[in-house]
């Protein structure tokens, strides 16, 4: 990327922040200020009184999927520059990527057999 490209990206980032920020400011100027009581401020739990903390333990499966994702994400990291030049390099580049993908597929098959892809 050229240096000037970053200028455009940063400008649009400010634009997005300005968009959300101005919406919040306008709402802050216009909205009514009514008294708050503890019941109104309690988190929504179908109208019942809140039980215990809200930051619960969650299923360990989420971590397993995130781990498999990291492996494939790194593959994507290699795939994109490869895809740009593979026509110029030709057959050798193709077979190198086939071998690389097959190793990753073996990993996926291993995770599959071990039951990491089952949701219980």
């Amino acid at each position: 990327m050229l240096n000037a490209d970053y200028l455009y990206i940063v400008f649009f980032q400010f634009l997005g922040v300005f968009f959300v920020g101005s919406a919040f400011v306008v709402s802050w100027l216009l909205r009514p200020r009514l008294p708050h009581d503890p019941v109104k401020k309690s988190p929504y739990e179908c109208g019942e009184l809140v039980k215990g903390t809200s930051r619960l333990q969650f299923n360990v499966r989420y971590y397993l999927f995130a781990l498999i994702f990291v492996v494939f994400d790194v593959e994507m990291l290699f795939l994109v520059p490869w895809a740009l030049v593979f026509r110029e390099i030709g057959m050798i580049a193709y077979f190198e990527m086939v071998i690389f993908s097959l190793i990753l597929v073996l990993g996926l098959i291993y995770a599959w057999k071990k039951g990491a892809l089952e949701w219980q």
């Binding site: 709402s27 216009l30 909205r31 009514p32 503890p38 109104k40 401020k41």
Partner: peptide
């Protein structure tokens, strides 16, 4: 836009 701001506890 005209709704009040409720920040839950």
């Amino acid at each position: 836009l005209l709704k009040e701001n409720i920040v839950p506890s």
